[in-house]
Design a protein around this nucleic acid. Structure first.
Lengths: 204, 204
DNA sequence: AAGATAAGATACGTTATGGTTTCTAATGTG
DNA sequence: CACATTAGAAACCATAACGTATCTTATCTT
């Protein structure tokens, strides 16, 4: 759950001189790892360059701030996998959706996202950009997808799927991460589904 | 919802030379305002001294890191008001508890707390200290207090008050803040109580 | 009133980062 | 193969915070 610094003086194994896509990829990855490790406020051109094994010059040639790099990086790498509610019962599909969120949040991308959202209050313009360019553009839905799927199939009363109810799973997930510093295990996720989401849907 | 920098060159109205409690108070307040404005990673001795209108010397005389100041400040200023479930119905008492949380979270103290908790993942030792010295020592409970009160009074099945259920209100509250950058209004709080907490208690 | 205490101003050398500029040589193209 | 790109290295200056040391003087104590 923790991403360490690049450490040693030579962070770059110097594969050879990269260009185009290969270089971009390394830079994007570095920006995400840096954010996961140091947070939004710790994100600097120097840090990204160091971790990517490139020179600041190559960064400033394309972007003017570290945030610009991060936004592009997150836009490209955002996990698209939506939960596919194929199974037969609501309970398992909700659990599967939250387990998917669990995987996502454990990745460097997930940690970077968490850091950004957590600090975004102090960077209002970033908050907007993240929501517009990353969350809304790509997925960002987990239990929501499942709930609407079941509602469309007529197996759930659409009236009960309010904005609050849509958020219960993710909200309890996030609170757990904040409190404990790591994502909940399967048992806790099952408890969330059984003790909070299903009752709110009238499926106690 | 945003705390601005001390701005002008002269942040200190120079009331006169303060000592003891008066000085301490100013320093504690400054540390909380700095954290609310700049986050944990932006907290520096220089910043606190500047905002408190004092000299770094006076800070180093007592503490060795800005975090030490902040911990003490939060310990002292943590809002103790527990919700007092005097009323007759569970619904209004839960709403009152979350409205109290709303007030708390809007204060500089609340914002600082949010910033710290959000970034604490990257400062594991701080995370521990905050939880031990601030949260556990003082309150940190809102709907939890209400739920246990009703359980003791025999008006709620204790078996339903699981760790997950205890967290529902605060979790949805926090998620709202993260998503929108400001705390929920009364209508949304009512929705949280009616659509999420009460159903989980079997009081739909 | 005299002396002890400590607030506050100032300055200093160090370190880290920011952002820019200049130069080199590797890589891809025609 | 020759040339145009551009990645990467290095040096630069400015800023900001660190931690410490020195000195003055307001304020409290006795």
């Amino acid at each position: 759950m923790t991403i360490s610094k690049p450490d040693q003086a030579e962070a770059a194994p110097r594969p050879t001189r990269r260009r185009g896509e290969a270089l971009l990829h390394a830079i994007y990855e570095a920006s995400i790892l840096e954010t996961a490790a140091l947070g939004l406020s710790g994100l600097t051109m120097e840090g990204i360059a160091r971790r990517a094994g490139t020179a600041k010059t190559s960064l400033y040639r394309r972007w003017s701030t570290p945030e610009d790099i991060l936004i592009e990086a997150m836009h490209r790498n955002f996990p698209q996998e939506e939960p596919s509610p194929a199974a037969t019962d609501l309970r398992s599909d909700l659990i599967a959706a939250l387990m998917l969120l669990r995987e996502t949040s454990a990745s460097p991308m997930g940690q970077a996202l968490f850091a950004v959202v957590a600090e975004a209050g102090r960077y209002p313009h970033l908050h907007k950009r993240i929501w517009r360019d990353v969350f809304d553009a790509r997925g960002g839905r987990f239990t929501k997808t499942v709930l609407h799927h079941y509602a469309r199939a007529g197996r759930l009363d659409p009236a009960r799927i309010t904005p609050v109810v849509e958020d219960i799973g993710e909200a309890l997930f996030i609170k757990f991460v904040v409190d404990n510093g790591l994502p909940p295990d399967r048992a806790h996720i099952e408890a969330i589904v059984e003790q909070a989401i299903l009752p709110a849907l009238g499926q106690g």
